[in-house]
């Protein structure tokens, strides 16, 4: 292991973990704006309020000092393991996302592995266990049902997600995220067909499908049944408190960050920005590295903002509607898009 790999790991970890509190703050502020409120603005450090930016810090302190209630007769091992299983996989999955172009000869990605996107998919699929174990180990029927509900939801929407990822991979002709982004930088973003205008409609449809599926994967509204405490007594995390609950909570936000980064990488051209030719033609000084990273972060921020916007705008789906949407509409549509991209791509020689 070279020191630069360690530095990149540290950077990505710090980046992902520091986006989470900002995201929580943004969620509160945007929800307040949409509902005509002011939102958190009372927390202050040395009298500085910073528009409530310290609120997540106060939340974290509160979470740490809350009593950690463990219900009677739970399976202690699985009960403790479950929040970790939700939190860790999305953080690991970020390793195969290129968060910038290059710094000298060093690509800005933690792990440049040949299977790339497939590794991300398989690592993300592990986090289902966190939901299932969390629900089962809580020794509560409602939690068990919530866990089963959420894991079934994740597995169902993973199909749509996988099919749309295959579509992007077909457009780019590679599963390596660096090559996917470079192809988009050379020829055009995948959302508009990756340089082939015949594929533009399919690209837009597939991007939307991917986004909807990623919302469902992360249990975000309009698919956030675990938050449904009035009708369904919550979900897999009903019996959790203190930092264990915070791990579930943070896991959801880390998954949102990873999914948004994947969306930017697969469909929105990664670090590429039209006009800024030096980003992909070099020279790759630290300035270009920084600007390409900023472009990536801004795109990711916009995608994240869209998720927050949707959350405070749309009502929630009922469970049978959610399954109907997943299996009867999204999966066939994603399959059709895949076929269209394949056939049109061959006919027009991608």
């Amino acid at each position: 292991m070279r020191w630069i790999d360690l530095a990149k790991i540290g950077f990505v970890l710090a980046m992902v973990l520091s986006i989470v509190p900002v995201l929580v703050w943004l969620e509160r502020k945007v929800s307040a704006f949409i509902q005509g409120r002011i939102g958190p603005n009372r927390t202050a450090v040395f009298g500085m309020r910073m528009a409530g930016l310290f609120q997540p810090l106060a939340d974290a302190v509160k979470f740490i000092f809350k009593e950690d209630v463990v219900p009677l007769r739970v399976n202690r091992f699985l009960y403790t393991l479950a929040p970790t299983l939700v939190f860790v996989p999305p953080a690991i999955a970020f390793t195969v996302i290129p968060f910038g172009n290059k710094w000298g000869n060093e690509p800005l990605i933690v792990a440049d592995v040949p299977i790339g996107i497939l590794l991300l998919m398989s690592v993300l699929s592990i986090s289902v266990y966190g939901l299932a174990f969390g629900g089962w180990a809580s020794n509560n029927k409602f939690s068990l049902l919530g866990g089963l509900r959420s894991s079934a939801q994740m597995i169902s929407y993973e199909l749509t997600l996988g099919l749309t990822i295959i579509t992007a991979v077909m457009m780019a002709g590679s599963v390596n995220p660096i090559e996917i982004v470079e192809k988009q930088a050379r020829e055009g973003w995948n959302i508009v067909g990756g340089g082939n205008l015949w594929l533009a409609p399919a690209g837009i449809v597939a991007t939307l499908l991917f986004y909807v599926a990623s919302l469902a994967e992360n249990n975000r509204l309009p698919f956030d049944l675990p938050e449904c405490d009035a009708e369904l007594v919550g979900g897999y995390h009903t019996e959790y408190s203190s930092m264990k609950f915070a791990m579930f909570f943070m896991g959801e936000y880390v998954a949102m960050v990873t999914m948004s980064a994947l969306m930017v990488t697969l469909w929105l051209g990664g670090w590429h920005f039209p006009g800024l030719t030096r980003l992909h033609e070099g020279p790759y000084h630290w300035t270009e590295a920084l600007v390409s990273h900023m472009v990536f972060m801004v795109k990711m921020g916009l995608v994240l903002f869209l998720a927050i916007w949707i959350r405070w705008t749309l009502p929630r789906y009922r469970y049978d509607q959610l399954m109907d949407l997943g299996w009867k509409r999204l999966v066939p549509l994603a399959l059709a898009t895949l076929v269209v991209v394949g056939v049109v791509g061959v006919l027009t020689h991608v």
Binding site: M121, S122, V123, S125, I126, V128, I155, E158, G162
Partner: peptide, 8 residues
Amino acid sequence: HVLVYTGA
């Protein structure tokens, strides 16, 4: 293997 067997 991880995606299909472990994950599903």
